[in-house]
Amino acid sequence: MKIALILNPYAGLGGSVALKGSDGVAQQAMEQGAVSKVAERVKLALQDHLAVLRQHHWLTCPGNMGATVLADLGIEADTLALDIADPSTAENTREAARLALQQRAELIVFAGGDGTARDICAVVEQQVPVLGIPAGVKIHSSVYAVTPHAAGEVLMAVTAGGLIDIREQEVRDIDEVAFRDNRVRARHYGDMKVPQLGQFIQHTKSGGVEVEELVLQEIAEFVVEQMEPETVYLIGSGKSTAFIMDCLGLPNTLLGIDAVLDRQLLQSDLTEQDILSLCQQYPVRVVISVIGGQGHILGRGNQQLSEQVIRQLGKVNIQVIATKTKLKNLQQRPLIVDTGNRELDLSLQGQWEVLTGYDDYAWYPVETY
């Protein structure tokens, strides 16, 4: 797994010297004797799990924005090409996030406060999941774990390859200038996707026992609602995806792939060449399901999605759907890709977002053998 670590080394400095935050006052805080605790909090999050975490591919920033703390922990990392100001700035954080996305990080772990979360959100939005290690004076955003140790527990669960919910959580920040004048003025700055693990993440919601058929109907309704005009949607084979065609009121090829354009049937039972032809005419997205008990998503029952088709579409245009019951029945075995091209299969490995309900996603590993 490719994980990016970004630290705001000046987060929380204002707390110990009663400045009620650190935005714009880091230098003043240090002059009053404040000492950064960010690296310590990151170590608290990671130190109990080093044997596992060292097995993953890490990206980080130079110096005290990440490289130093990972070196102290014996975690090897690639350093992002980032010129850091002294002291580091919000723009340094945003640029680090941009570089992490360019390097295809699958998870961005960051340490700081609400201001840091704002900077990460301004760049990342909902592109990849994030996990915050709390290190600021104020933590109102629900993208943070409740404690550094809790962040480590979430990170371990994610890297273990189990079924982890992914939900959009709010980034909020208080106007520190107003706060220092005893006026609380909070604002919602956006949402990011955050892995969920029980009590370890702030403001999580708990779900009940799912009824699989109802969940498949909810998944279908959400897929249909999200369909964009003048875009072709390839609806893959299987009973799960059949619910989407039923929701549209369209005939379905149970063991084939159908093309839908503007919520109308464009073509039934497509071949590889049919799909490649559509890719030359329209934006194309595909919805596929998981083969129950086996976990295959590509290469079994949908060979029309060939190596050439998959390369043309790109992972970003492939949506996997499955109920949580189906994923749990895999008993932590990964989803499998078997396209016939080893290089392509290896490039598709990693954590994938699986649509598991109405606007409800889980993070699940995809591998090849």
Rank of each mutant, 00 (worst) to 15 (best):
M1V: 06
A4Q: 02
N8G: 12
G14H: 09
V17L: 08
V17P: 05
L19P: 00
G21S: 07
D23V: 04
G24W: 01
V25K: 01
V25E: 01
Q32N: 03
Q32E: 12
V38W: 00
A39K: 13
V42P: 08
Q55L: 11
H56P: 06
W58Q: 02
P62C: 09
P62D: 12
A67E: 11
T68S: 11
A71N: 11
I75P: 01
E76R: 12
P87Y: 03
P87V: 05
T89C: 10
A90P: 02
E91G: 06
E91A: 14
R94Q: 15
A100C: 08
L107G: 06
A111H: 04
G113A: 05
I120S: 03
Q126P: 01
I133R: 11
H140M: 12
S141D: 09
S141T: 08
V146D: 06
P148H: 08
H149N: 10
H149T: 13
A150L: 06
M156N: 10
A157C: 02
A157P: 02
G161F: 02
G162L: 04
E168H: 06
V177Q: 13
F179V: 03
P195L: 03
F200I: 00
I201S: 04
H203W: 03
T204I: 02
S206E: 14
E210H: 06
E210Y: 03
V215Q: 06
F222M: 10
V223A: 04
E228R: 15
E228H: 12
E228N: 10
P229L: 11
V232K: 07
G236S: 07
S237R: 08
K239C: 03
K239S: 15
T241I: 03
P251D: 02
L261Q: 07
L261H: 07
L261M: 04
D262A: 04
L266R: 04
D274P: 05
L278V: 11
C279N: 12
Q280I: 02
V284L: 08
R285G: 08
V287W: 13
S289D: 12
S289N: 10
H296W: 12
L298Q: 05
R300H: 13
Q304H: 10
E307K: 09
V309I: 04
K315E: 10
T323N: 10
K326Q: 09
K328Q: 13
N329F: 00
I336T: 12
G340A: 09
L344I: 01
L348C: 02
G357P: 08
A362W: 06
Y364D: 11
V366P: 07
V366K: 11
T368C: 15
